[in-house]
């Protein structure tokens, strides 16, 4: 049954992680296509044909106007050939149909800046953002993440903590107001937080690599089906991805893969 789950990874204009995201989706059991955005804009390929949309990491348009800003602008304003819709319209319809969207790194930035996350009440209004790391530098380092078990997020079900790499210069999560942060907390939409060696959320560098408020590394929408995070789950699907695999006894499968398995299982159980 899982074989019928169809996943799409959008590529082009500066995405970089489409191959490994597709690999993770396939390992989790989904039929997966990497589709160049020009195919979607030409209407030769449609989001409607898929259940699970992946927005991969990268540098859309070089992040020149701020991370994912120009990319969000393209999705919002570029028209699909022969239709009045933009890809953003297609994307909102995709979400409304109860399908799954995961954005990693640049994909998370894109979801937040298009207002798809957290999208309180399905309003698609931007009220959070991801900005420059406090240290003003791009960094590649592995981080401990604490998982919020009370979150509606379907991707992290059954997980308590995950160890994943961050690779970004603009990963500091901030909200437009204390009220937004309060509501994120109250509705349990904060899914993963940067944690210290003891597993507790931390604001201290380097365990919190970017200075994110409330140590937020990833959030979901109220449905739990749209999820974004800065760390890269697709970068830990096998034990040899782990930075200490030559000195620790690790399970064959990396913990990052669990997120993709949960997504595929959820789709198989509820959408097909």
């Amino acid at each position: 049954m899982a074989a019928k789950v169809r996943a799409i990874v959008i590529s082009g204009n500066g995405t970089n992680c489409e191959r490994e995201v597709a690999h993770a989706c396939r390992l989790a059991g989904a039929d997966t296509d990497i589709v160049h955005i020009s195919e979607l804009l030409a209407d030769r390929s449609r989001l409607d044909d898929y259940h699970f949309l992946n927005l991969a990491g990268g540098f859309l348009d070089g992040d020149d106007l701020g991370s994912a800003k120009a990319g969000a602008n393209r999705l919002t304003h570029a028209r699909v050939a022969g239709r009045q819709d933009s890809l953003a319209d297609d994307l909102r319809r995709f979400v409304a149909a109860g399908k799954l969207v995961m954005g990693v790194c640049n994909g998370f930035q894109l979801l937040v800046k298009m207002g798809l996350l957290p999208s309180f009440d399905g309003d698609f209004r931007q009220n959070c953002t991801l900005t420059f790391n406090d240290r003003g530098r791009f960094e590649n380092r592995w981080c401990n993440l604490q998982v919020n078990n009370h979150s509606p997020c379907i991707y992290t079900r059954g997980l308590t903590d995950i160890f994943l790499p961050v690779r970004h210069g603009e990963g500091k999560f901030v909200t437009d107001s204390p009220e937004t942060l309060e509501r994120l907390e109250k509705e349990q939409l904060v899914v993963v937080r940067y944690a210290d060696a003891q597993g507790d959320p931390t604001l201290i560098y380097p365990d919190n690599p970017n200075g994110s408020v409330a140590a937020i590394a990833g959030i979901c929408d109220p449905s739990g089906r749209v999820f974004g995070l800065m760390p890269h789950p697709e970068a830990y699907v096998h034990r040899t991805h782990h930075p200490r695999w030559t000195r620790e006894d690790l399970p064959e499968e990396g913990l990052g893969l669990a997120l993709y398995r949960n997504a595929v299982d959820f789709i198989a159980a509820t959408l097909i």
């Binding site: 590649n140 380092r141 970068a235």
Partner: peptide
């Protein structure tokens, strides 16, 4: 310097530039 370079994109880096108990 090493941390400013993405050394893991493409998910193929098995022995990374930095290694050991505290990476």
């Amino acid at each position: 310097v090493v941390r400013r370079y993405d050394h893991e994109v493409q998910a193929g880096t098995v022995v990374k530039p930095l290694t050991g108990v505290t990476n």
